[in-house]
């Protein structure tokens, strides 16, 4: 089995996020890191390999991004990937979710994995959708919010987190699976793995290398346009019950909850 993990370089969690009013895009300057949600996908791949149920021949980390994204790939191989692929091209800059999904699908076509894993969301754009978009371009099944994977020859049995409870879904391979962060506790990369990361193969691919039609990507190729950005509406202040007489306070809270049919 060959597993590709889609990973992304995102602004570090400590960096305050802001939209650049000129480009209408997220300001991605400052300290960056591997998207923490993708570390769950890498860990899931490692656990499939270590379970020994199927033989995993290769785990490949795949990213699309500027030159700096190489660091996210180094972290991905430190966490267990055998090699990495970096799709980078000026033509890709400004791609929306659909264009990005198309571009990643083209890389995956050249890799022909049996299974594609990714984190449920990126820590910057937080669209939660890239897995489904990639799967649609590849015309393979896709599952989201997966928190348990049982692997067998040619198929997976997955548990996905639904709004109420869990769905158990069997899926034929190849498939694109986006995993929830409840699926596992990612390991720390060991020092040796960190120090060995730069020695693992890293293929840099341009749009042309993987047959991307550049009219389908970048700002021009994207089907969405950001017309305006607005801050979220301010939340109305909550209702505060001062606890002077506890019986009365309890009654007030119960009445409030009943009014909203919450009890």
């Amino acid at each position: 089995m060959k597993i590709c993990c889609l990973v992304k370089e995102v602004p570090d969690a400590a960096v305050q996020k802001r939209i650049d009013p000129n480009t209408m895009r997220l300001d991605r300057s400052g300290e960056k890191n591997l998207n923490p949600f993708d570390t769950h996908a890498l860990e899931a791949a490692m656990q499939i390999r270590e379970s020994g149920v199927v033989q995993v021949d290769e785990i490949v980390a795949v990213t699309m991004g500027p030159e700096s994204a190489v660091r996210a790939l180094h972290k991905a191989v430190a966490l267990g990937a055998d090699r990495s692929v970096h799709l980078t091209d000026p033509a890709l800059e400004g791609s929306d979710v659909n264009a990005t999904g198309y571009a990643l699908a083209k890389v995956l076509e050249s890799e022909q994995p049996d299974l594609v894993l990714l984190g449920q969301q990126s820590d910057d754009g937080e669209c939660y959708t890239i897995g489904a978009v990639v799967a649609d371009h590849l015309q393979v099944p896709s599952l989201t919010q997966v928190i348990k994977i049982d692997v067998a020859e040619g198929k997976l049995t997955c548990e996905r987190q639904a709004e109420y409870g869990y769905d158990t879904v069997e899926v034929e391979l190849p498939a694109v699976i986006s995993v929830g962060d409840a699926i596992n506790e990612p390991r720390y990369p060991s020092l040796k793995a960190i120090m060995g990361a730069k020695k693992k193969p890293l293929d840099t691919k341009s749009a042309a290398d993987v047959g991307i039609d550049t009219s389908e990507v970048g700002i021009e190729g994207s089907k969405t346009r950001v017309l305006a950005i607005n801050p979220p509406p301010a939340k109305e202040p909550g209702e505060v019950f001062e606890d002077e007489d506890t019986d009365e306070t309890v009654n007030k809270i119960v009445a409030w909850l009943e009014e909203r049919k919450l009890v």
Binding site: E31, N33, R71, H74, K75, A78, Y188, P189, L191, I194, M195, A197, K198
Partner: peptide, 17 residues
């Protein structure tokens, strides 16, 4: 941070985590 290599930063960040 500016004086550290990517590898040194990754080691530091791992131990910090």
């Amino acid at each position: 941070d500016f004086q550290l290599s990517d590898e040194e930063r990754m080691i530091r960040d791992t131990v910090r985590a």
